[in-house]
Simulated assay, not measured.
Amino acid sequence: MRATLVQIDVDTEETVADRRERAARLVRAQAGADLVVLPELWPVGAFAADAFAAEAEQAAGGPTAAVMGAAARDAGVWLHAGSVVERDFSQEGGPLYNTSLLFAPDGTLHTTYRKIHRFGFDRGEAVLMTAGDRIATARLPQAVLGLATCYDLRFPELFRLLLDAGAQVLVVPAGWPARRLAHWRVLVRARAIESQAYVLACGTAGTHAGVEQAGHSMVVDPWGEVLAEAGPGEQLLTVELDPARVAATRAEFPVLRDRVLGMPTP
């Protein structure tokens, strides 16, 4: 299973529409990959809270979905298009969500995930966006994906639920600040080790809304080994994954069978 992480630079001098088209070109160039992953809120910037309302869109049928769906179809790849600021337009002034979009190779929107844990400590995303209320997984031909977003990394109970739902590859788009890069590296590896699953963690590069981004997207295997790590700038990471390694690791070191607390009800 070939996976490519697109660590895109969210340049504040670039319009959202131009960045969509640039991201689409990067995705189209990945024909031959099985899965392509973009970061969190890359159209507007994860810390650009003042622009959230103005740039809000529908998850299905919005401009990002239209451009990314076409790019997935043209490349023939599964595309985790990171996340967008979604508004529920079914009601006037409807709530905003930080919503991830997963497209199938035919360009259709296959799965969405509304971020459950909102970052900000009573500011920004934490007050402007509504929390999601359900986990999301997607069964690809090669493996089952479990979806999470950025700040979710700090809540291992979410990843236990994804594990129990069958996840073998955990996909985590992020807009992680550079000042907490050390936490990023530890948490990404911890989620892989405790879940005995691959983790594909894709962050943004550059500085937006005054916040320097960590970059350093990572691919970690089920044993916790870092297979690839980006630098701080815009970069592509392409890694070959072996989904069978998940089952093999769990059989070789069967720690998950010794779980006692929080086990799913039969």
Rank of each mutant, 00 (worst) to 15 (best):
V199S: 06
A205P: 04
A205S: 12
A182C: 09
G215I: 06
A248G: 10
A190D: 15
E225S: 10
E229M: 03
H183D: 15
A201G: 08
E229K: 01
V226W: 03
A197Y: 08
L236D: 07
E212R: 15
P222S: 04
W223I: 09
G203L: 11
V226C: 04
G215P: 01
C202H: 05
R191E: 11
A192S: 09
A192Y: 00
I193C: 10
S195E: 07
M218F: 06
V211W: 06
L227Q: 03
E234M: 13
T249V: 13
V199A: 08
W223E: 14
P254H: 09
R185S: 09
A251R: 15
D242K: 07
F253I: 12
G206A: 08
R245A: 12
D242E: 09
Q196H: 10
L236K: 11
A209I: 11
L181P: 07
L187H: 13
T204H: 10
V211P: 02
E194G: 10
L200F: 07
V246R: 00
E225F: 12
A248E: 15
V186N: 12
E252I: 08
Q213S: 12
V220S: 02
I193D: 07
E212I: 13
L237C: 03
H183T: 15
H208C: 09
A192P: 01
V220Y: 04
V199F: 09
A192L: 02
T238N: 04
R185H: 15
V186G: 12
Q235G: 09
R189C: 02
G224L: 06
E234L: 11
V219Y: 00
G210E: 07
Y198V: 00
A205L: 08
Q235P: 05
V211N: 06
R180W: 15
G231D: 07
G224K: 04
V220A: 00
W184D: 07
V220H: 01
V226A: 03
C202V: 13
M218G: 02
P222G: 01
A205C: 08
T204S: 14
L227K: 01
V188R: 01
G233D: 15
T207H: 07
A228C: 02
E252H: 15
V220D: 00
Q213P: 02
A205Q: 07
A230D: 03
G203K: 11
R185Q: 13
L187S: 14
P254E: 09
L237I: 11
P254K: 05
P232V: 08
D221G: 02
P243N: 03
R189Q: 08
L241Y: 00
S195F: 02
A205T: 09
D242C: 04
G231V: 05
A230F: 06
V226Q: 02
A182R: 12
A214C: 14
A248F: 08
E212N: 12
E229F: 04
W223T: 15
P243Q: 04
E229R: 01
P222M: 02
E252L: 14
E252A: 15
T238K: 04
T207L: 05
E240Q: 14
A228H: 02
V186A: 14
W184V: 06
D242N: 08
A247F: 13
E234W: 13
G224T: 06
T207P: 03
A182S: 15
A197S: 14
A251H: 15
W223N: 12
Y198K: 00
